[in-house]
Design a protein around this nucleic acid. Structure first.
Lengths: 246, 246
DNA sequence: CGTTCTTTTGACCGGCGTCAATATAGGTGG
DNA sequence: CCACCTATATTGACGCCGGTCAAAAGAACG
């Protein structure tokens, strides 16, 4: 998987020109592979790089000084990581691989010529950033204002939808790949209570579980319970004019 | 207050060139005044505009379908609003004026020539966006992982710090300008419990209150209680090269 | 100067955390 | 392949933080 193929697959935002493709090839030259559990960047690390997740599954989190962890987001192919580098010299968050992962490494300095030569690509990155922002809004509302059961249901739906985006074969049944503690740290709950909520969803026949796989049995009701909105579709970049073909 | 004067005051990121100043003057031509309580944009409204808050105080929030409200952010002069327009045709959040406010209106289409002619200004906006993202990370961790008292304390410190940024005369004492219900909707608590937490902070001599004014008595301890990190300072745009002076 | 919004306080309760014990699984070295 | 070990999952008992309900007192506003 290269950055360009990723853009072809997920972009869908607009038709890339020949020179934009070439630019993406150059932008995506540096790749890096991470083993399961390996950190890409730690909170407060100095860094000038941003990344595109090409394959695998990662997460971002922060630690509070009482030792508790808040997982900010689970990351899937197509996501831009560490965009804070655009405005800060140090990272506000830790990035770790949940499975073996491949990222493409871009130094922020590379964005400067991009603005001049391929503004549309820059706006595409900005648009992806806005999708992430919208997701963050949902999570904030979710954690701040919904019940434990809703929060757990929302994580399940979110992971399923985002896995589906990179692997269309995934249906209602999928391998969650998260521990209950991780779900808890993402939702502001304890692992014990996450377990109880999973059991409750199971007892209500909204989901089924077997050896690490989760099956969503009643998607309509799950969406209702979770207060869930799909933010993945609906990105609109039509307003950025296509460059004159080189 | 114009957009350019705002950039002079808050930017501090780099020295503006003459042509950048001119560009800001043009960018900031359209202004709009909002009365207290007036919405600038509602959730799901179609819009192609972003805004810079020039004066006053606003907030952004979302409503859940059980009617509860999650306030995402209190907004102060210098903030960029509705950046979701970059990636979406409709707004994910509602923006309302808390006090009489003035915003400058920029259509997203105006960003395209900006990328070509004044990339540094575009990156400055991107950097402000990253500051907002960092603040969002803090709020997520705060709501997900800290006690009610910590959350209330964090709001007080945050509002104070951000008021200070636009009005250097503000010290430890300031007019909060928020109802306890608003504090509750921002922190994921009920107004009743916010009241109890304010009383607790008062009883512990961390703050004092009198007729709408709040005084932070023990800032060190407040910061400890709130798990508070200042994200306002520390933006780094040094990596964007200055344009050749026109 | 009523009307409505906001603050404040008390009584009570329930959702979620804490603690603890056990079961299960994955992983590792022998 | 087994024995062991640690991480994860599961379940129960119990307690507390923060929600709910209600009432009253200010405060703001037309």
């Amino acid at each position: 998987m290269t950055l360009r193929r990723l853009a072809d697959q997920f972009g869908g935002l607009f038709e890339l020109t020949r020179s934009e493709r070439d630019a993406l090839d150059r932008l995506g030259e540096r790749e890096r592979t991470l083993r399961r559990g390996q950190p890409l960047l730690r909170e407060n690390d100095r860094s000038t790089e941003l990344f595109f997740l090409l394959g695998g599954q990662m997460m971002s989190y922060v630690l509070l000084d009482d030792g508790s962890r808040q997982i900010l987001r689970f990351l899937f192919p197509g996501d831009v990581l560490a965009t804070a580098a655009i405005g800060y010299a140090t990272s506000p968050e830790t990035l770790v691989a949940l499975t073996e992962s491949v990222v493409c490494v871009v130094d922020r300095a590379q964005l400067v010529p991009l603005a001049r030569d391929h503004p549309r690509l820059l706006f595409a990155i900005a648009a992806m950033e806005q999708a992430e922002r919208a997701a963050m809004i949902d999570r904030l509302a979710n954690i701040g204002r919904t019940s434990a059961k809703a929060r757990v249901a929302a994580v399940l739906l979110d992971v399923r939808d985002r896995m589906q985006r990179s692997d269309a074969t995934i249906g209602d049944s999928f391998t969650l790949g998260l521990t209950q503690e991780e779900i808890g740290d993402a939702t502001g709950l304890t692992a014990v209570h996450v377990n109880r909520m999973l059991r409750a969803l199971e007892d209500e026949r909204l989901i089924a579980r077997a050896s690490g796989r989760v099956t969503i049995l009643d998607e309509r009701m799950m969406r209702r319970v979770a207060n869930y909105v799909d933010r993945i579709t609906g990105i609109d970049l039509s307003w950025v004019p296509a460059p004159a073909e080189a």
